[in-house]
Design a protein around this nucleic acid. Structure first.
Length: 283
DNA sequence: CGCCAGGTCGTCT
DNA sequence: AGACGACATGGC
């Protein structure tokens, strides 16, 4: 077992996991504030401890999770850049300075964000868990069982009925179609080689993937920071805090990418998290 | 019960 | 190009 200890000033597990970028994490029942985080076929236990963030994982997975949690990136510089923008971004960066954008498994991100469309987060998590339990493999970590995210081949082996049974609803056809389309393999390189613009075109060409899902996959799966998913929350920030008048979400996305440049993806998370937390407080 | 969920597709102007 | 309803399901 390996223990990765990292300065926690810009690494808050709760905020990073709860900002809507990832769905396969579970609060560790017997350890307050600790989470089991699953990615592809791996699992780790992660928590904040005093000034540090700690990740416990199998020794062979150390490099995987160092990359997964984006540990080589200078988040202090990103937060400073956001703070320098002033206004709502300064406030949002203060609140969300512990958020990191994960380097998720690309296939998992693609399938997961198709599930996310017109859906709520608790239900998305439930569907994905049933997808893993029904099509993935059983593994053990720290004496507890978990399921791996199914491979493209494992998904392709399942009939349409399976996807309906786990509660995907009309999205079952999207998932089935995608699984069949990959013919047993997911060629990451084919996607990774593309520019962000072409990657989005390629993703949108997939049945069930529209501009919003494509931007999420691009940002959360491929770490393309010049992606800016626009949903109702971002639209709200745009109107209320940037005095925006555009209504076309694609144009709003372009506006933010042009304004924020290489930090656009990070700033999107700060703004999203900030706006949504205001709503939650009000309730 | 009705509204909504980190939308997308098909269809019609 | 832009508007609009349908879509499965269940959380709240």
């Amino acid at each position: 077992m390996e223990k990765i200890v990292f300065n926690g000033e810009y690494f808050n597990l709760r905020d990073t996991l709860n900002c809507g970028q990832v769905f396969r994490f579970f609060a560790a029942e017997d350890r307050d504030g600790a989470y089991f985080v699953n990615s592809a076929d791996k699992r780790c236990l992660a928590y904040n401890d005093g000034d540090n963030a700690v990740i416990e994982c199998e020794s062979e997975d150390r490099a995987y999770f160092e990359n997964y949690f984006d540990l080589t990136r200078d988040y202090g510089a990103i937060v400073n850049a956001a703070t320098a923008q002033g206004g709502v971004l300064k406030t949002a960066a203060k609140l969300g300075k512990g958020i990191r954008i994960l380097n998720q498994n690309k296939a998992e991100a693609l399938f997961s964000f198709i599930v996310s469309q017109n859906n709520n987060i608790p239900r998305i998590k439930g569907i994905i868990e049933r997808l893993c339990a029904g099509a993935g493999k059983k593994r053990t970590f720290c004496g507890a069982e978990y399921y791996t995210f199914p491979t493209a081949a494992e998904l392709a082996a399942k009939p349409l009925e399976f996807f309906k049974e786990i509660g995907l609803g009309y999205r079952a056809e999207y998932i089935k179609c995608l699984a069949d389309g990959f013919k047993g393999t997911f060629d990451e390189k084919e996607f990774s080689a593309l520019t962000t613009k072409d990657l989005k075109k390629r993703l949108v060409a997939i049945y069930g993937v529209g501009p919003k899902v494509a931007d999420c996959v691009s940002l959360f799966g491929f770490h393309r920071l010049d992606s800016f998913p626009v949903d109702t929350w971002i639209e709200k920030v745009y109107r209320e805090n940037f005095n925006g008048t555009l209504t076309d979400r694609a144009k709003i996305a372009d506006y933010f990418v042009e304004t924020f440049g290489k930090n656009a993806g990070y700033f999107q998370q700060y703004l999203f998290y900030y706006k949504r937390s205001l709503e939650k407080e009000g309730k």
